[in-house]
Design a protein around this nucleic acid. Structure first.
Lengths: 207, 207
DNA sequence: CCTACCGATCGGTAGG
DNA sequence: CCTACCGATCGGTAGG
């Protein structure tokens, strides 16, 4: 009732008064991306942030809570990137252009922008079932974006009509999500890869 | 000089005089496939085989030696499966049929036959650099098989000619190697998937 | 192939 | 957010 305490004030005046949670998640994403679920320790994360391991629990309830948060943020970042790319397209853009733009956005998020995105991919398989379960709804929502893109392609007859739409979507996601295994920034241009992946899938309309 | 010892004889007469190394590798492959590198412990492997953890070192020098052996066996099994499928094709088979047969063989090895193959994929990313380095030559040799398949497709103009052969090969490997993430034996038919993946990549000749 | 064990490390907690 | 610590577990080794 007598105003802010000294510690609250000094916290406000720190050079980088960033959210402690976000700082921890940033470090966790970076380490998870490179080491995977099991090899990422709370001590690694704490050291990267400049605090002690036990202090992590001041911000998060468990390691798995951190991993789940990173994974969900990761998927949401790709999804935002893809949505932004799609809505930035001119109204005249057809399904083929939308496909290429979506692939480019996904690859940029996965290979460049976001530790969160690649951490999510890498840690997902190792993570305990509880973490995977927590992450599944967000993933499903993102996959629905691709189902929509592919459905438009099918309707416009821009893809082989004897391949089920579901298989098509999974094939596209496979090409993209496998790319961290071989992508080298000094040897590949992401926009070129996006164009190539789109070209592999697309057919010119038979009209 | 005085003949086989009792223990040698009794070993010969055991019900399953299998190579101890192979038994351990089989168990390791199965556990690695499900748990990945870090979460697979020597104690798990030993328990699955019915021996004690320390006894593993009677057969292998280290955990990493086991993992490296599983990974290399895995790649070699896919490669053998693909080679067998290709050489089983009639001489009249063209590059398109060879592609579909190779995809089918790869998917069968990855999704059905071999714990080794999927263990190799799953453990490769987590494994320490030393293990990855040891596994790389075998992988390169297998990728060369795909480079050959794709080169034949390019020469026969059965694939989009504005996509580099290297990208095409990586896209195909991506579709296939991502499939363990979504494949469900009760919902997908492997040969159908192989046909669909081939159809995505193939163009009818413009002749 | 076993017993017995080491040193290191981990996620997490108590009590400030 | 820290110190100090726990119980569990891990890869690996000594010496049979």
């Amino acid at each position: 009732m007598d105003g802010a305490s000294a510690s609250e004030v000094s916290r406000d005046m720190e050079a980088a008064p960033r959210d402690g949670r976000r700082t921890i998640l940033d470090a966790a994403a970076r380490i998870l991306r490179h080491n995977g679920y099991k090899a990422t320790t709370l001590r690694d994360i704490a050291a990267a942030v400049g605090i002690k391991a036990g202090s992590i629990y001041y911000h998060f309830a468990s390691k798995d809570a951190i991993v789940a948060a990173v994974m969900n943020d990761g998927v949401e970042r790709v999804q935002e990137g893809v949505s932004r790319a799609l809505s930035g397209l001119p109204a005249t853009a057809g399904p083929a252009e939308r496909l290429e733009a979506a692939i480019a956005a996904h690859l940029h998020a996965l290979l460049e922008y976001s530790d969160y995105t690649s951490a999510g991919l890498k840690a997902f398989t190792d993570a305990p079932e509880a973490v995977r379960t927590a992450a599944r709804p967000v993933r499903k929502r993102y996959e629905a974006v691709w189902d929509g893109i592919v459905a438009d392609l099918v309707a416009a007859r821009l893809v082989p009509d004897d391949v089920p739409a579901e298989t098509l979507a999974l094939a596209i996601l496979g090409m993209m999500n496998w790319s961290p295994e071989w992508y080298r920034a000094d040897r590949h241009a992401i926009d070129r890869l996006a164009r190539d992946f789109a070209a592999i899938v697309l057919r010119r309309p038979a009209g």
